[in-house]
Structures are given as C-alpha cells and as structure tokens.
C-alpha cells in the first residue's frame, strides 16, 4: 500500500488545556460521568503506540454516500446536498494515510434515526445517518451527504445543537483515537452551544468549524465544506532508547 516505513514512535503528550475538561456542569450529563481524580500520566507503551488499521475491503460501495446508502433504489435522502472533504493530519502536518473515519448525523430536519430520540421532527425514510471512509495516501477523504438540521435537546430548558456531523477517527495508534464533531461556518447556534462550550480556547473551537468551499462545489449538484482533522503527532524513532544489545 505504501513505501512509508511504519511509524513506531511515542505520541506527543496530549494538551489537556486545549482539550475539554471532563467536568463541565453547564453540560449536565458530564457531572456524574466525569472522573474526579487526576489521570495517571503514562509514557506510551506498545499497547498505545499500536492500534487497529482497517483495509479498504471493509468498505461497501455506498458507505461514503449518505444520500443513497439507506435510500430505496432510485430514491435519495431529502435535504441540501453537500460534499464534506478534507485531510486527516497529525500535529507535524503529515497526512495520516489509511485512517478509518466513521460519521453520523441527524437528517435535514434535525432528527436522528434512533429509538431514544424524542424530537418531533419527521424521519426521512431514505436517510439512515451513518457512513464511513478510509483516507488515501495523502490523508485525504471525502463523502457525500445532506446538510443536517439543528435540533433541540434536554439540558437547559431551551438548548439547541448547531448543525453538526459526528466523526470517529482511527489513526495508526490507539492513543490517537478521537471522536469529535464538525460544525458549519456561519451557524448562529455555535456560540450558544453548551457542548461546544466544553472547549475553552476559541481557537480550538474555530478548528472544528468547516468553511463553505465553493471551489470544490459540484455545479448543479452539491455544495462543499472542507474539514481537516488533526490527530496527535508522534516522535521520530531514529534515536529512541533501546535495550543494550538490541
């Protein structure tokens, strides 16, 4: 697949001030689900530097097309058609090849296809809401979907999630495992959202907002949003400590 040597170095320490804290009482569910004791800091061992890597044989033909992967033959999901694309990079700026991305989202009306979902907005019979893809040699990915709607949720009496797409990312090591969300440029609900407010640095929030990308829009078909995701970087192993005689 690649001529690159597998990376075997330890990951850079996670910047916990940039990442959200566990305890964020304005997002109420976090109160009883946040560890109270300090995390145990641990240099990476093989258990964290390795991780599962998935092959393209995993993917079905429509996995990266949420407009059609749940729709009846000849039909398609309702809503503004969009392309979401970008790169998975590490903190050194290297593209992460072969990263598995899984994404899920509400339909154009803000409704999830889920038993426990109580929002009155209608289900779209042609929209499931999940998809996945694997990045290419440069760390590039793209998929097709409809733009999700914002939705209300029980937290405060009147809290709304801005339109968003959830992303789960597997890089090359289990320590890189990340779940995050993509937001849309210009959404007025972004600064009001208690979940976004779990991130304290405005620059870290900006990094999760995808701009409209007119250059990559497909004329008369779909508009485009660009969303890059950055995973932890890792040390070069050239001068890594080794056992004597190894």
């Amino acid at each position: 697949m690649s001529n690159r040597k597998p990376e075997t170095g330890a990951f850079f320490q996670r910047d916990r001030a940039w990442q959200p804290d566990a305890y964020t009482p304005w997002y109420k569910t976090s109160v009883l689900r946040s560890p109270e004791k300090a995390l145990l800091s641990l240099g990476n061992t093989l258990s964290e530097m390795t991780g599962p890597v998935f092959g393209h044989d995993l993917l079905g033909e429509l996995d990266d097309d949420l407009i059609h992967n749940f729709a009846k033959p000849g039909e398609s999901a309702i809503g503004p058609r969009i392309i979401v694309h970008g790169r998975i990079l590490d903190e050194r700026g290297k593209g992460v090849a072969g990263a598995l991305l899984e994404f899920w989202q509400a339909n154009a009306g803000g409704r999830y296809r889920h038993k426990k979902e109580g929002y009155v907005a209608a289900l779209d019979p042609n929209f499931g809401g999940c998809g996945r893809t694997i990045t290419d040699e440069d760390g590039y990915y793209s998929f097709r979907t409809i733009r999700p709607g914002p939705y209300p949720w029980p937290n405060g009496v009147n809290d709304w999630r801005p339109a968003h797409i959830h992303f789960s990312v597997f890089g090359h090591g289990f320590a890189q495992r990340l779940i995050t969300q993509m937001y849309f440029e210009g959404d007025p609900l972004i600064p009001l959202c208690p979940i976004i407010k779990t991130i304290s640095d405005p620059a870290a929030i900006d990094q999760l907002i995808a701009p409209l990308d007119m250059a990559n829009t497909i004329p008369m078909d779909a508009s485009a949003y660009k969303f890059d995701i950055v995973l932890r970087g890792r040390r070069s192993t050239m001068f890594e400590n080794r056992m004597e005689g190894n």
């Binding site: 850079f12 996670r14 910047d15 940039w18 990442q19 959200p20 997002y27 976090s30 990079l89 590490d90 903190e91 050194r92 700026g93 899920w104 999830y112 889920h114 426990k116 979902e117 959830h166 789960s168 990340l178 779940i179 995050t180 969300q181 979940i195 976004i196 779990t198 991130i199 640095d201 620059a203 870290a204 929030i205 990094q207 999760l208 995701i229 950055v230 995973l231 932890r232 970087g233």
Partner: peptide, 14 residues
C-alpha cells in the same frame, strides 16, 4: 508543532 490536535467532543447519545 504545526497543528494542534483537534478538540474532542462528546460521542453523544446517538
């Protein structure tokens, strides 16, 4: 370091 790791967000109920 060129980039910061993307911030995590909750996996949510769904």
């Amino acid at each position: 370091i060129q980039f910061k790791e993307s911030a995590s967000q909750t996996a949510g109920p769904y």
